[in-house]
Design a protein around this nucleic acid. Structure first.
Lengths: 119, 119
DNA sequence: ATATTATATGAATATATACTCATATATGGA
DNA sequence: TCCATATATGAGTATATATTCATATAATAT
């Protein structure tokens, strides 16, 4: 981590200023964790289907063409990050989205993807 | 992947309808790839500093307190995903943001984090 | 040409994570 | 109570990825 190359393009003042404005490590950690949840195709599929309607685990497994266990594991991730909520009915558990911002998240991501195509 | 539990809460029609509306696998792949780029604290730091001003590799290494090689590797990821651009000046290479949507991406992510705190 | 500086890159390693398999838990029905 | 169904979970495995180390490349200056 100690380097042979030195910081010379910016001054010590600028350096301190930039580092002071950097979001706290806790915020950075939670941001990367949040984005990490969306960085998986299976979870994206689950989130898409739940954005259309409430669904039980077995139906999500069928729709995504994945095993029940895999879906359960991923739903746990989504629960822990407060992106989905659930309710029990008989022996089934119905999941639904628990965050209004998910749509906005997808929108800005799609904008980037579409911009890439134009270039 | 073949399961003992069956899809019974939704009809075959509903199932087909939902699966037809699912974004293409290519789009899902690019979305997860895009989010994956933000799912790393080092890259988040780099993106934050570059959102403040253009910077060379050595300065980014100093600011992030990471090795030069680590920063170069991460800059490659950011280049390949078209999030940063660069220009050469003498022996240095100056990086800067190459996407207007990055700010929006952070904003919606912060909204989620702040919502989590309220609960 | 040679040395110096800045950056990039390949290999190796350590860690994280997604899936599968087997099994546990929970709920409702016979 | 015993069984069936739906879901959750722990262990194991395979794969991806972030960092480090050593070295290569590129540009400039002497």
């Amino acid at each position: 981590m100690s380097e042979t190359t030195q910081c010379k393009m910016i001054s010590a003042d600028q350096k301190k200023n930039l580092q002071d404005r950097l979001p706290s490590l806790e915020v950075l950690q939670r941001l990367s964790e949040f984005f990490g949840v969306f960085a998986d195709e299976t979870r994206l599929k689950i989130l898409f289907f739940l954005s259309q309607q409430e669904l039980c685990v077995a139906d999500l497994a069928t729709l995504t063409q994945m095993g029940q266990s895999a879906i359960s594991h991923q739903l746990k991730v989504l629960r822990l990050t407060r992106l989905v909520k659930y309710r029990k009915e008989k022996t089934s558990i119905f999941y639904s989205l628990d965050d209004d911002h998910i749509h906005s998240v997808f929108e800005v991501a799609m904008e980037h993807i579409l911009e890439g195509d134009r270039k």
